[in-house]
Design a protein around this nucleic acid. Structure first.
Length: 299
DNA sequence: AATGGTCAAGTCAGC
DNA sequence: GCTGACTTGACCATT
């Protein structure tokens, strides 16, 4: 069991998700931004190892506009050595990596242009992880997509679109239950038809579920991961007190997290903390999890 | 230097 | 019909 946080570390000097306006796009600007983001990614990974955090989500903004038609720059070639070096560090430290493309990736959209842009974005994510030399345990997580007032047909459209995806994407793609549209049960149905692993989101399940207990839910989702996919990933968060229903917590609720460790005890899993104060809560989570027999310490 | 409007992309609930 | 939320705030023109 590895503990992690998404994309940004607030304790170190750089952010790693620098971007710029499309209007100011140039190859020079792109290369400068990617160089800075990669430098910072390496710094965040080092911080994580020093703090027993072995799970990290890489921002989709690492290469801004990578899947946009404006981007003709050969960032794969330009940064091949740097990406390989970061990937080598990931491998030698045993760090687990995920990515989570933005909400704009909707592969079950009715509009074929949206599907096309979504596939291009998935290609970028797969290319990036490939360029880092990471194996198929490095995952790309997406939601099933839109409902459009016809869930059955929309689920079918997902399955159809999924089967046309390139193998470089398929070997990394996993689906996650969301907080408004597709429940864990929906995702498990998609798994039955496609084999796609299901990433269980504990908080989304609390906000929008088909009634399963968290314990049963995490066991069901974990059963969809094959050995080649690695230890099942789960997203963890809790309700922000006083916030709107579904708002992610600003900081970790230790009791709630302990309860989740107990609920998930039957399976091993890597836990991504989707909590707004990032590494701060992840550090506390790792300290809490350190006594759990599943907890994986840095090598 | 500070600030506020705006930013590639989609869906949908809530107003 | 518009805004906010979503895994996340940052860019940049203007003052």
């Amino acid at each position: 069991m590895k503990i992690g946080y998404p994309c940004i570390n607030r304790s170190i000097a750089c952010r790693g998700n620098r971007t710029f306006r499309l209007a100011s796009y140039s190859e020079e600007r792109l290369f400068a931004t990617v160089a800075e983001n990669l430098r910072c990614l390496a710094a965040m990974l080092r911080y994580n190892i020093e703090h027993t955090l072995l799970f990290f989500r890489i921002t989709s903004d690492l290469v801004p506009f990578a899947s946009h038609p404006v981007c003709a720059a050969d960032w794969r070639g330009r940064f091949a050595a740097d990406l390989a070096a970061v990937g080598e560090y990931v491998r030698e430290t045993g760090t687990r990596i995920s990515m989570h493309p933005d909400q704009f990736v909707v592969i079950n959209a009715r509009d074929s242009d949206i599907v096309e842009r979504s596939v291009a974005e998935l290609c970028y994510h797969a290319d990036l992880l490939d360029a880092m030399g990471l194996d198929t345990t490095a995952k790309i997580q997406i939601h099933v997509g839109g409902v459009y007032g016809e869930k059955e047909r929309s689920l079918e459209r997902f399955v159809r679109a999924y089967t046309t995806l390139d193998e470089t994407i398929l070997r990394r793609l996993v689906i996650e239950n969301d907080d408004r549209r597709y429940t864990l049960a929906d995702c498990l149905r998609v798994h039955d038809e496609t084999g796609v692993p299901v990433l269980f989101d504990r908080f989304h399940h609390e906000v929008h579920s088909s009634g399963e207990s968290p314990r049963d839910a995490v066991i069901s989702a974990a059963g969809t991961w094959r050995a080649v996919d690695g230890v099942p990933m789960v997203d963890y968060s809790s309700q922000q007190p006083g916030g709107r229903r579904g708002n992610h917590a600003e900081t970790i609720d230790p009791d709630n997290f302990r309860a989740f460790l107990a609920e998930s005890a039957p399976v091993d899993c890597d836990i991504m903390l989707e909590i707004k104060d990032k590494e701060k809560s992840a550090l506390l989570a790792a300290a809490i999890a350190a006594t759990d027999p599943r907890f994986a310490a840095p090598r």
